[in-house]
């Protein structure tokens, strides 16, 4: 049985070699791939496995494994109300940021795609947030949200409303951070969409113009279908980024007030580096990883029917 397997393997490898004479590039290829393989093994695959492994143990504050705990870390995490709230805030955060970022990014790109005077200026403006770090953006927004001096409350007062503690009221904090995040992420999404719209054949638009097709119709029936791979890419990237949002939460609310913005990533950070409980933090990391993988798979399945490649 085993001999047969080995024989088959030999045959199949012989086949590969005869198919193209360069099939013996393996040695060179491994040399070229070596740096990536070493780095990925060391900093992606090994730590991932280690995180899964650690999540099955109770750990000491020096992150030494103390005793095997099975799925206990997972159970403790999932039963705790902080974690459940964190899960809820994460979902709210993702739902509040992703659709609006993608829609605004696309609309701005659509509006500035025409080649007329001054457009270069608007393009610079709308792409600018891509060039501003999360830390700097957070400081700009901390001012915008300032209860006394900030512009948001000035607008509220102007319309005769009561000022709001955007970052200090548990009811609003997660939306405030989400709002700032939309702004931070639009720049990149905008640039991707603008590039994609501009790569659409001009003749298509000319034909549409000659036939007097309405712009909204053109957008719905032509541009959006053609851009479906771009939408797919942008939505996937946005979802993953939203789940991983960290800097703006750390700068603006530190997970507060009253855990209102204590998302999963922030809890993982706190549990591992502040509460020094790496067993539990690892379990939370694995849960988050599973959520992201499931969502990505579902989204891929779902969009397979909707995305069409040229």
């Amino acid at each position: 049985m085993q001999n047969k397997l080995i024989l088959e393997q030999k045959q199949s490898s012989a086949k590969v070699q005869t198919k193209s004479f360069t099939g013996k590039d393996l040695k060179v290829a491994l040399l070229f791939l070596l740096p990536s393989i070493v780095l990925f093994s060391l900093f992606v695959f090994y730590p991932m496995l280690k995180t899964i492994y650690t999540s099955l143990f109770l750990t000491s504050t020096g992150s030494k494994l103390v005793s095997f705990a099975g799925i206990e870390n997972y159970l403790i995490a999932m039963k705790s109300s902080v974690f459940q709230n964190g899960f809820k805030s994460t979902i709210i955060f993702v739902l509040a940021t992703v659709p609006l970022t993608v829609i605004f990014g696309f609309l701005l790109a659509f509006l500035t795609s025409e080649k007329i005077r001054g457009m270069a200026f608007f393009r610079l403006i709308f792409s600018s947030t891509m060039g501003i770090s999360v830390a700097a953006s957070s400081i700009f927004w901390q001012f915008m949200f300032n209860p006394v001096n900030g512009y948001l409350n000035k607008v509220m007062l102007f319309f005769g409303q009561k000022p709001i503690g955007w970052l200090t009221d548990p009811k609003y904090a997660i939306y405030a951070v989400a709002f700032a995040t939309i702004w931070m992420n639009i720049g990149f999404i905008y640039i991707i969409f603008l590039g994609a719209i501009q790569s659409i054949e001009t003749s298509l638009f000319e034909a549409a113009a000659i036939q007097g097709v309405k712009k909204t119709y053109l957008m719905r029936k032509v541009i959006i279908p053609i851009l479906s791979p771009t939408f797919y890419f942008v939505i996937t990237v946005s979802i993953i980024n939203s789940f991983q949002a960290f800097g703006q939460i750390d700068m603006l609310t530190k997970g507060g007030p009253n855990n209102a913005t204590n998302t999963l990533v922030y809890q993982i950070y706190q549990d591992s580096f502040i509460n020094l409980n790496s067993g539990r933090a690892s379990a939370e990391a694995v849960i988050l990883f599973i959520i992201i993988v499931v969502i990505t798979l579902v989204q891929t399945k779902f969009s397979e029917s909707k995305v069409h490649y040229q």
């Binding site: 992606v44 730590p47 280690k50 992150s63 993953i240 991983q244 988050l288 990883f289």
Partner: peptide, 20 residues
Amino acid sequence: IFLMTMMVPFEATFIANFQT
């Protein structure tokens, strides 16, 4: 496998990477 590394989020690795 290379593409798969894009799926692994940073938070699944940073605790262990820190120790490394």
